[in-house]
Computed example of a mutant assay.
Amino acid sequence: MKKYIILLFVLCISPVGNLLAKNIIADSLVFVYSLHGQTRRYETTFEEKGDTLYMNWGIERNLKWQSGSYGMGKKSVAEAIRLSFLQPEDGKHVQLPSEETVAILSQAAYKQLKEHNSFVYNQTKYSVLDTNEKTMGHNLIHVIDNVEGCEIWILDNPRIPIVWRMRNNPLGINWEVQQISSHK
């Protein structure tokens, strides 16, 4: 009888746990990374829990599902000055330092972009080229680094300015986001 009461309790509180974490983007996204001719497709969600924004990721590799997350604290989301290029490792849940974000711009960088048509991230200045493309009901802000030619497309969404696409990255890590339905 005790087992049934515990099971019933767990079943009742599991929806409550899901209410504490809310997805910031309704759909799952696929980040398609390419590096030195190799391509990896990571299914991701962005989720807020408390004062931390998580980028949860998963990928099927060698017939096994691998997953992990990157956590960005309140200060990271507000003021970070650089992108993290830390490679995902199965089972790792990484809390990024306050000066880093992963796959998004900080609110300060986004504000700078909107007010001045340029911003600085990773000690590199990016300037707006155009805003001709749209996705998920938002424009993509296409920026370029005039020194090394790195191009970035940023989702024009003040809530979560996702780095939607990156080309000509001097580190060789390029990516593009694809939207997939959350209703599989």
Rank of each mutant, 00 (worst) to 15 (best):
L63V: 09
T45G: 01
N146H: 13
D130L: 01
S69V: 09
R159K: 11
T135L: 09
R159G: 06
R167W: 01
C150V: 10
D51W: 02
N117V: 06
Y126Q: 01
S28F: 13
H93I: 12
L8G: 15
S28V: 11
H36I: 04
S69A: 14
L63G: 13
N174H: 09
I180N: 02
S118L: 10
I104S: 01
G58E: 06
D145I: 05
P170V: 11
T52M: 04
D27C: 08
W164R: 04
G50H: 11
G58F: 06
E133R: 15
F9D: 11
E60C: 05
L7D: 04
Q38F: 07
L129G: 01
G149P: 09
Q178W: 05
G37Y: 02
N168T: 09
L105Y: 03
Q178M: 08
M136I: 15
R61Q: 10
I180C: 01
K114Y: 12
G71V: 10
L19F: 11
K111S: 07
E100H: 03
E89F: 09
V10R: 02
F119I: 01
T135E: 14
L96W: 03
S14Y: 13
M136S: 15
I6Q: 07
E48R: 15
I6S: 07
S69N: 11
I152E: 04
A78T: 15
K125C: 15
T52D: 02
W65E: 02
K2F: 07
Y70V: 09
M55A: 02
I152L: 12
E43F: 01
Q38D: 08
F9A: 15
E48T: 14
L113D: 01
S28D: 11
